[in-house]
Computed example of a mutant assay.
Amino acid sequence: MSDTEHWPGFDRKKHGATPAGEAIDRRSLRTRMALQDALMRLTVARGYDDLSVAEIADAANVGRSTFYAHFTDKDDLLRSSLSALRDILAQEQAATRQDGPDGLFGFTRFLTRHMAEQQVLIRAMMRGRSGAILMDYIHHAIADILRAELAPGTRPSNSAFDTEFSVQFLVGGYLSVLTWWLERGAAEPPERIEKAFRAVALRGLDQAA
């Protein structure tokens, strides 16, 4: 798998290039996908911070005016590229809900594995401003999933405060573990990392209940 083939197994034609609720024709969709792929390729090759809109447009074989017809700047393009990730995580979580307690935090199974598969791309993104955008996007996507899973009343004695406290604690913990693991070269199998995190997280929730 190429390090620019981000979010594998996901129908980008259906979800990846289009903001929520926005209809888009096939030609526009192809343009958006070409720009997204160009951004990822150039980020790996040269880094994110020094890239210009003109360079991204040239790599996608479109004009600057076409770029600005779809995106306001390269940060907007990056966020559009990441929009598929939120949908994937929601899909993964929905698929594990039937597993009962074992399905809690099921999104970590996909995300941990995927981050390991895309180490070259992730490292390149983390070296520039794109790293902050990436981590902020993942933070909010995970937090939204956890709020739904840990909504007040779904566990014994969890108030709105307790729920948000748990959400922020779990998101921060997971991202810290993920960053630490990737910085060490993802030496351990992703299954070991996500299972260890889920075990600690579930034990912590049980003790807090």
Rank of each mutant, 00 (worst) to 15 (best):
V44E: 06
A45Y: 03
R46V: 00
A54W: 01
E55M: 10
E55F: 01
I56M: 03
I56G: 03
A57I: 04
D58Y: 03
A59C: 07
V62D: 03
G63A: 11
G63C: 05
R64P: 00
S65L: 08
S65H: 12
T66G: 03
A69I: 01
H70F: 13
K74C: 04
L77N: 06
L78R: 03
L78N: 01
S81L: 07
S81A: 15
D87F: 11
I88G: 00
I88M: 14
Q91M: 10
E92F: 00
A94N: 11
T96N: 08
Q98N: 09
D99C: 09
P101I: 13
D102H: 11
D102C: 04
G103H: 08
G103Q: 08
F105H: 10
G106R: 07
G106L: 07
F107N: 04
R109A: 12
F110M: 04
F110T: 02
L111S: 13
T112K: 03
R113Y: 05
R113I: 01
R113S: 13
H114I: 02
H114R: 09
A116S: 14
E117P: 01
Q119G: 10
L121A: 08
I122Q: 09
I122N: 05
R123T: 11
M125K: 02
G128F: 04
S130F: 05
S130M: 05
A132I: 10
I138T: 11
H140C: 09
A141D: 15
I145C: 05
A148Q: 14
A148R: 13
A148E: 15
E149V: 00
A151S: 12
A151N: 07
G153K: 10
G153L: 10
G153V: 08
T154F: 12
R155G: 13
P156M: 12
P156V: 12
S157G: 11
N158A: 09
S159H: 08
A160P: 09
F165P: 00
S166E: 10
F169D: 13
L170N: 06
V171E: 06
G172W: 03
G173Y: 06
Y174Q: 04
Y174W: 13
S176H: 09
S176G: 15
V177H: 01
L178Y: 02
